[in-house]
Design a binder for these strands. Sequence first.
DNA 1: CTAAAATAAACGAACATTCATTTATCTTTG
DNA 2: CAAAGATAAATGAATGTTCGTTTATTTTAG
Lengths: 196, 196
Amino acid sequence: MRTRDENKEQAIRTKAVEMVVRDGFDGLSMQKLAKAAGVSPATIYIYFKDKEDLIIQVCHQLSARMADATLADFDPDMHFDEGLRRQWLNRARYCLENPVEMHFLEQIRYSPFNEKCHSKTDMRFRNAMKRFVHNAIDRGELQRLPVEVYWSVAFAPLYQLVKFHMSGRGLADAPFEMTEETIDRTLEVVLRGLKP
Amino acid sequence: MRTRDENKEQAIRTKAVEMVVRDGFDGLSMQKLAKAAGVSPATIYIYFKDKEDLIIQVCHQLSARMADATLADFDPDMHFDEGLRRQWLNRARYCLENPVEMHFLEQIRYSPFNEKCHSKTDMRFRNAMKRFVHNAIDRGELQRLPVEVYWSVAFAPLYQLVKFHMSGRGLADAPFEMTEETIDRTLEVVLRGLKP
DNA sequence: CTAAAATAAACGAACATTCATTTATCTTTG
DNA sequence: CAAAGATAAATGAATGTTCGTTTATTTTAG
């Protein structure tokens, strides 16, 4: 029998992400996607059940990649300051190196697709984070806080910086670029708030 | 001549927001919207130039409402702690009282529509914020920070809490509700980080 | 009356998906 | 080793549906 051309599936996935980022969800049509990926419309349905399945599969793939990138060189038993910095740098680097994928995931996160895209990978990732936090609390490196409070303070500022960076503009519509210096300065403030 | 029925325009706006929140941007069709609003499809085009104009106008209306709510009982000359708390409570209350509108605005913010929805109201609002911050720095109530760093630490955590609350679930898929106690606890941490 | 509001019906275009057919590759046979 | 058969990949064309928008007509208030 004829063998699958994996390049075609990946072309479909890649172009789908690009189209959603450029034109929004209503700009993603199966026929235009097929043309962009250099493939017949019917071919898409060999790899994906339907349009929704395509979006969900792409979402899972990208989420897993991002989770992996975030956990690189990270150990839940690290000192809190070091571990948090490692994660900030990992996340920042991933976002800067994959702006389109990042944009796609954010667009998913705030759309009705969000509920359908919860994966088990997220669970593995969350458990690592949970252990990291409890270690830090036990060692007196971190205040005892409700986990949602901790998360909000520890990560939301980073993602806001990333958002500024990706839009290219800061608050007063002034050009903005997120440097490692910016990251460290912000992290300094956050850590001071979180310390016991 | 016949007079405009303002109720019809508002019904169109309201239903449009509901449809986008429930079904996403690709779930908003002019014919379904007309049916939901109890109106003929052609009537929508009396009030709005086209579909894009409809979305942008709705976005502007809701942004203005939210900016107003945020600035209620707020004065840029307030003490930093008091002023920030006032804004947190204002924003939190608005989000909790208008979850659907909030969800709509977030969906806009991460979509390609975002660029087309920048309003002058945002500018007025941003200027008030800028003055508030410079006052606080001059009085020694706040560290001198790049404005994007300040903003990321001062507000992103609040919006993350709101996001948890609106989804109804916290980090470990456990039920989560944002109470005034949660807000104050988080604000405490943030303020500690931002103080000189 | 008049003029704008409101509508029902209709427009071509684009939509997601399917179907009948062709193409490419592996397996079996001589 | 080569030709035939088997099978899934891949396709172009067509399906009926729904899309955003317009037009011709009716309704309603000043």
